[in-house]
Design a binder for these strands. Structure first.
Lengths: 194, 194
DNA sequence: CCGCTCATGTAACTGGTTACATGATTTA
DNA sequence: TAAATCATGTAACCAGTTACATGAGCGG
């Protein structure tokens, strides 16, 4: 809870240049990978991801790429096939350095964190359930992970070929699943689930 | 990318009752654990968490608890010690069932996902760095995990005593760290880092 | 009495969401 | 030719962010 004082009513003189959001940087990366590519391609790539972090909605992506273009991180150019309009984007040199700065090192504070797991968030309050509800919870959580596994594999099959780093992402997904299963196992075994 | 059609200009007749956000439900849980407790306590609990998911800012929490109270999920009552104002909240029965519904099962879609890891997001684009930058990246990532470990331990020491389920959360944190270290190791060993 | 923590908020903004809308092209 | 998918957007909304602000109580 920081409290950085500032002269009331005034905006800082130094260019504010609002920090890029996590999604903006991620999109920068996706464009970089698919150069040149359209906003729609970005949306598709986001939508097929096994992560629920972003919704890939048109209302998020179109204004976002427009923003990045205005800032000079992307350059877009219209291309039409027949009567179909299509605007394709590539990274500018500034866009590439913004991407590299985000990837790090150094990492910004948002990256220094435990992973976010919605199941963990919920588990924290399992004391609010009855013992039998807790058993059902663990069972359902296992099924959820099975479901996630299908998504991870599907994603992996589609991407591992193009790019060696995609394999690392799939590996992360698989190890993630293994670890969360082990975690569920530990606590089904422990007394907390009783 | 769903496209559920709706008669233009009209709002659905069925009570919209906007779904509670993840943060709202999480706060419901925190209040439940600390009943009765003030918004400030919630903020502190959020702030000391090793997760960067939420900022615990006053601007988020005060309006949020007010919202939950208006909806009848929390009931607050003023208490003053001397001249110091303090508003303490507890869950209403409806608040408790909202909490239980969120914990699940069943899980809402947001919970059916791989964990979100900012390092994984960045790793996806490591091809944009030079090999030596990648080596530095892996090194920095390891240090980041050391830092996170300190945070997790600190949190664990503070909470494990009160509540058996807090231990599960700490366990999750520790297993998470172990898995991400192993992941970094695998890929430092692999050819992708070269 | 100074500075820190406790405690409660508000104001302005903005990024992302849901939902709408439109028209071209492909496929069954 | 109807339905699905490609492709691009916009409008309204709102949750959460940053920053400001205030004042009580406490330790040195």
């Amino acid at each position: 809870m920081p409290r950085t004082p500032r002269t009331p009513g005034s905006t800082p003189a130094t260019t504010p240049r609002t920090r890029l959001s996590e999604l903006e940087c991620f999109v920068l990366g996706l464009v970089w990978q698919g150069q040149p590519c359209a906003a729609y391609d970005i949306r598709r790539r986001l939508a097929e991801s096994p992560s629920t972090q972003w919704s890939a909605s048109a209302g998020a992506i179109y204004p976002l790429v427009a923003r990045l273009e205005r800032r000079g991180l992307l350059k877009g150019r219209a291309r039409r096939t027949g009567k179909r309009a299509r605007r394709e984007y590539s990274l500018t040199p500034r866009g590439l350095s913004a991407l590299r700065a985000w990837i790090g090192p150094p990492f910004d504070d948002a990256a220094i964190t435990v992973t976010h797991d919605p199941l963990r968030s919920r588990a924290r309050f399992l004391a609010a359930l009855t013992p039998s509800q807790r058993k059902a919870w663990v069972r359902a959580a296992r099924e959820t992970l099975d479901e996630v596994e299908r998504l991870v594999r599907a994603w992996g099959e589609r991407h591992t070929s193009d790019d060696p780093f995609a394999a690392l992402v799939t590996l992360h997904g698989e190890m993630d699943l293994a670890f969360r299963r082990a975690w569920l196992g530990k606590f089904a075994a422990g007394r907390a689930s009783k």
